[in-house]
Design a protein around this nucleic acid. Structure first.
Length: 414
RNA sequence: CGGGGCGUAGUGUAGUGGUAGCACGAGUCCUUUGGGAGGAUUUAGCUCGAGUUCGAAUCUCGGCGCCCCGACCA
């Protein structure tokens, strides 16, 4: 992608109506555009980041035998009335049609997926079954905040599984929890599995995946020695207590952002929709259901918060909009320009996403923009490098500089 | 939803009752080209409504919007 043709441009100043670091940086760098409080559009750079995150999540869900589907986000009101959500879930957007009909906007999809499951899972042989989607969710938050971290419209991956037995569910639940941690690790974050309230629909605990960051809105307690971690809303221990699990570490208080959660829904929804299957003896049984969410756009916001520095964003290579930022310091020098053009074509030919700064600007502006945009590796081409016959490779995070020959560069790529 | 703050060119800001200014951006031209360069020139604005006043960006009331704290949060 030629930067001169990029749909967006960077800004020197942060908008005055955002205080969250993620929103300031993402807007300045041209990743997102704010529509209203809690609602953002994603521009080319932002869309690329989202697609990368989605693909990481998609692979992981496929790995745990989830099948991707795409459910409606405009919902009939009936299933919501059937589960009680219509009256009990205050974040549910309710829509009045110009006709007498009422609709809901999907804030979660149990009301849609359970009736679908009921139609296809009629025998124990059809179970387990696990489906997921990546799509928009709508929640009528009283107060949207923290940039893209708590919006009224956001992108979520939500998976739902149905199981014939509690044991089968438990096994699957653990599998998903494990793969979730890998997802966050791939995104450059360390997440902790945190015990939390199950919400209004279950007595059981749920598990939240928390990333330690001051930008988060949850208070957690984590053990300094083991993986034990509890949301303070359900914590029996206090800061400084000895960990109840390993009995070695002490519990440490921290701010954290919830990037995902998993719920054991039991048989609630199956019962609400009278979803039964025939077991091996021919008896009707309610399946055990689980749901597993990952906030895709929130995850992007948390990465932006947690990994940025005073110059701008610092994307891990797994989610970065481009692998390389080719910065040409031609300054009117035809030789350098031609060299950069050729290099851009050669990298592009390999199918490697590269942003090519071909604009006629001073080096300082180009570097400042590159730092702000936060692509992990800069390739700098100028008179200097042309004379030495080498490429200057600069890591965005560490600032580490490597001088490599063109052959070495393409050698490592191939 | 309760409390607080704020709405001025595309962006960031100055202007507390009397001619709306600056910087950045954007356009044209010239010079410059390894960390936001310089000059010339052009462009573009007071959130909406009502009121007070000879006169309102400025004062009063109301609406709308945005941010923050709290409450809330499948």
């Amino acid at each position: 992608m030629r930067q001169s043709a990029l749909f967006t441009r960077t800004r020197r100043d942060a908008p005055s109506d955002e205080t969250a670091k993620n929103a300031q940086l993402l807007i300045r760098a041209g990743y997102v555009h704010k529509e209203m409080a809690g609602v953002y559009s994603y521009l080319p750079l932002g869309t690329r980041v989202l697609q990368n995150i989605e693909n990481i999540v998609r692979s992981a869900m496929n790995f745990v035998d989830g099948q991707e589907i795409r459910m409606a986000t405009l919902h009939p009101s009936e299933p919501w009335k059937q589960t009680g959500g219509w009256d009990n879930i205050d974040v549910l957007f309710k829509i009045n049609s110009r006709t007498e009909r009422e609709y809901a906007l999907g804030q979660s999809e149990e009301e849609i997926v359970t009736p679908i499951g009921k139609e296809y899972a009629v025998s124990y042989k059809d179970l387990p079954m696990s489906v997921y989607q990546i799509g928009q969710k709508y929640r009528d938050e009283l107060r949207a905040k923290s940039g893209i971290m708590r919006g009224r419209e956001f992108t979520m991956k939500d998976m739902y599984s149905f199981h014939a037995t509690q044991e089968d569910f438990d096994t699957y639940y653990e599998r998903v929890k494990e793969i979730y941690l890998q997802i966050f690790s791939l995104c450059g974050l360390t997440a902790r599995v945190t015990e939390a309230s199950g919400g209004s629909f279950t007595e059981k605990l749920s598990y939240e995946f928390m990333v330690l960051t001051d930008a988060g809105e949850d208070d957690i307690l984590y053990c300094t020695e083991c993986t034990h971690c509890v949301n303070v809303e359900v914590a029996k221990d206090k800061e400084g207590d000895t960990c109840m699990k390993c009995e070695k570490g002490t519990m440490q208080a921290a701010k954290a952002a919830e990037v995902a959660n998993v719920f054991d829904l039991g048989q609630k929804y199956a019962k609400d929709f009278d979803f039964t299957f025939k077991d091996a003896e021919g008896n009707d049984q309610y399946p055990i259901m689980g749901c597993y969410g990952i906030g895709i756009t929130r995850l992007m916001g948390v990465i932006a918060e947690a990994l940025s520095d005073d110059k701008g964003l610092v994307w891990p290579h797994t989610v970065a909009p481009f692998k390389f930022h080719l910065v040409s310091l031609a300054g009117g020098n035809k030789e350098v320009e031609e060299y950069a053009e050729k290099l851009y074509e050669d990298i592009s030919k390999l199918g490697v996403p590269v942003l090519y700064d071909d604009r006629e600007l001073h080096a300082g502006e180009k570097f400042a923009d590159a730092d702000l945009i936060g692509i992990p590796v800069k390739i700098i081409v100028g008179k200097k490098t042309l004379e030495s016959g080498q490429l200057e490779i600069v890591a965005r995070g560490s600032g580490k500089v490597d001088m490599v020959s063109r052959e070495q560069f393409f050698g490592t790529e191939a």
